[in-house]
Design a protein around this nucleic acid. Structure first.
Length: 578
RNA sequence: CGGGGCGUAGCGCAGCCUGGUAGCGCGUCUGCCUUGGGCGCAGAAGGUCGUCGGUUCGAAUCCGGCCGCCCCGACCA
């Protein structure tokens, strides 16, 4: 095992981090000399980072290979045609980096590789006998994120392990999907991450089902709803909850229009003289789904979830309508909108209000509302029930009698049952045993490599720096001679040689620095085992053994450290498939 | 895309309001000193003040355009 000497290594640590680093992983990666920023969402990975990233990739490879997945390496530069075939050249919009070649042909930088892998399957797979196939690669992806942020957590160029499964039928897909899920659990565990697998929104990938692997951290951008009593856990983009049924006072006859001058908020309608509780109001929101207007109706005190609206409409993109788009459509401004008897656009109604009666909503006339609205009678004739609202912490679990917890989380992996969306689009078919041609049933499975790195730091750090899980630490151990005296240096080099001989990866801090500097850097970089060689200990033939995660310092005979470190490394990196 | 902030030495910042000398800390280099938690002393190097234009005798400072970066709201590994 080669030894790295700190005096020669490029490990540019900093006393102060740039102020624009907001999250712990970003701050520490910069301070500890792992990364530097090149541009918005673009990072230089320096040698320390490269070492850790390579370890993460190695774990991913081992687990992929263990379930029979085969590694590929495909281009990151794609001709536009293949994306046009699947229809995603347009769907991906501004998130895709696009460019032209010298002849004027359209190209893009790959955001993901469903199209490319599916094209290979289409061209090469003919028979069900060749299935299942599970293919993967570890490769660079490019996404022109509207807002890169949080260091490595949201960037424009990143490394993804993406895998694709090809089966004859849904049962085969289920098996491939389960294999991947198992591999993902082992990968994240081995990388030292606590994670939860949650039910997820499929977004632009399409398909029937998907799960995200989430790391619970405030640095994350997703919200997960989870039940501590049962296994239920879902991204709030799909999570549902159990709500108490609300009693409604009876109301005879048709809705009644009443004047509400100047009232344009739920809040205002709650106040006197109206006194209409938010839970008795219908909130009507106007959105454009792929450019076409739609209405979303939720309870007054509930929040619309745009991802759910996207699912309900089947659109690839939804956005709130501008006020000037709303007025001509509904004849009123926001604040007086309602969906009663409105057929000018599709209407979606949240289940929480589907059975309600005697509700109040806008009359589509500025300054007027309607009361006595019976949702089933007045809205569901033309409208459709669809999950639209965002669940909140404290609501009932939809699966048991528990109470939902809602927390922030970072997505590190996502697995999808794609079905035949891409095989249909690209005509990737095989012949079944009965001689009939059938579209290949696909799954797609992604892991963000740099996100694992950053997530591990979010989970494992303290005031002094990073506390790497041993399996993905840039080095297993660091050896610090606490002075330049020949006997110290000689003893340190003896320890270093023994460690290297025992298969331990060592950073040897041979710099002519004061002990304080070496201790600070060792803590900052976060190497799991620190072996300090000082005069006092050496007089007894001992060196200091300290683990980054603990306060305890042990004196260990010089001759025993290597075996001790090797045992620790063996134990911590166990779990690799044979 | 909507809103806010910033751009001055490698890093962190002051100077700008009220135009005229570009400064501080850390880091770097040299020497001495020190050697168990980012020591101490002395000396030194290092800046087209993001960029283009305007105002002015004179612009880091005032005005305008552009570029870049960060943060807050809608997207994803």
């Amino acid at each position: 095992m080669p030894v790295v000497r700190a005096s020669k290594a490029f490990i540019p640590t900093l006393k102060e981090a740039p102020t624009d680093a907001q999250v712990a992983s970003h701050r520490l990666l910069v301070r500890a000399g792992f990364v530097r920023q090149l541009g918005a969402g673009l990072y230089d990975y320096l040698p320390l980072a490269k070492r850790s990233l390579s370890k993460i990739e190695a774990i991913i490879r081992q687990e992929m290979d263990a379930i029979g997945a085969q590694e590929f390496y495909l281009p990151a530069l794609h001709p536009a045609e293949i994306w046009r075939e699947s229809g995603r050249w347009d769907v991906m919009g501004d998130n895709m980096f696009r460019l032209k070649d010298r002849k004027g042909g359209d190209y893009c930088l790959g955001m993901t590789h469903e199209e490319i892998f599916t094209a290979i399957a289409r061209d090469e797979l003919r028979s069900y006998r060749q299935l299942p196939q599970v293919w993967y690669q570890i490769q660079t992806k490019f996404r022109d994120e509207p807002r890169p942020k949080s260091g490595l957590l949201r960037v424009r160029q990143f490394t993804m392990k993406d895998a694709y499964s090809f089966d004859v039928d849904a049962a085969g897909l289920d098996r491939s999907y389960d294999d991947q899920r198992g591999a993902y659990e082992r990968i994240f565990s081995r990388c030292g991450l606590d994670f939860v697998a949650v039910q997820a929104h499929s977004g632009s990938m399409g398909g029937s089902g998907s799960q995200e692997f989430m790391v619970r951290t405030d640095a994350g951008e997703d919200l997960v709803a989870a039940c501590p009593k049962c296994r239920y856990a879902a991204n709030t983009e799909t999570a549902t909850s159990r709500l108490e049924a609300l009693p409604d006072q009876p109301w005879e006859g048709a809705p009644e229009r009443f004047a509400t001058p100047g009232v344009v908020t739920i809040e205002a309608l709650q106040r006197q003289p109206y006194g209409v509780g938010a839970r008795r109001q219908l909130k009507t929101l106007v959105y454009l789904a792929d450019g076409r207007p739609v209405l979303a109706v939720v309870r007054g005190d509930h929040d619309l979830n745009e991802a759910k609206l996207q699912t309900a409409t089947g659109a690839s993109e939804v956005r709130p309508a501008h006020p000037e788009e709303i007025l001509p459509l509904l004849g009123a401004r926001p604040g007086s909108l309602g969906a009663v008897a409105f057929t000018g656009a599709p209407v979606f109604v949240d289940p929480a209000v589907a059975a309600r009666t005697n509700m109040v909503t806008g009359a589509n006339e500025d300054g007027f509302h309607l009361r006595g609205v019976d949702v089933k009678r007045d809205l569901l004739g033309h409208g459709k029930v669809a999950e639209l609202r965002t669940v909140k912490a404290g609501e009932g679990c939809p699966r048991c009698d528990g109470t939902l917890d809602v927390f922030k989380a970072l997505e590190v992996g996502h697995i999808f049952k794609l079905g035949t969306k891409y095989s249909d689009a690209l005509r990737a078919n095989v012949l079944k045993a009965d001689g009939v041609e059938t579209p290949i049933v696909m799954g797609s499975y992604g892991i963000g490599v740099e996100r694992i790195l950053a997530a591990a730091i979010e989970l494992h750090h303290d005031q002094d720096g990073i506390r790497w899980p041993l399996a993905i630490a840039p080095f297993h151990a660091t050896v610090l001679p606490l002075g330049q005296e020949p006997e110290l240096v000689q003893a340190a080099e003896q320890v270093v040689a023994a460690l290297a001989g025992a298969g331990v990866e060592v950073l040897y801090d041979d710099r002519d620095e004061r002990p304080g500097v070496k201790f600070k850097d060792a803590d900052l970089i976060g190497i799991p085992v620190r072996i300090a060689v000082g005069k006092k200990g050496l007089a007894q033939g001992q060196v200091e053994w300290k683990l980054r995660g603990s306060k305890d310092v042990a004196l260990v005979p010089l001759a025993e450290v290597a075996a001790r470190a090797a045992a620790l490394v063996r134990q911590a990196t166990a779990g690799a498939p044979a």
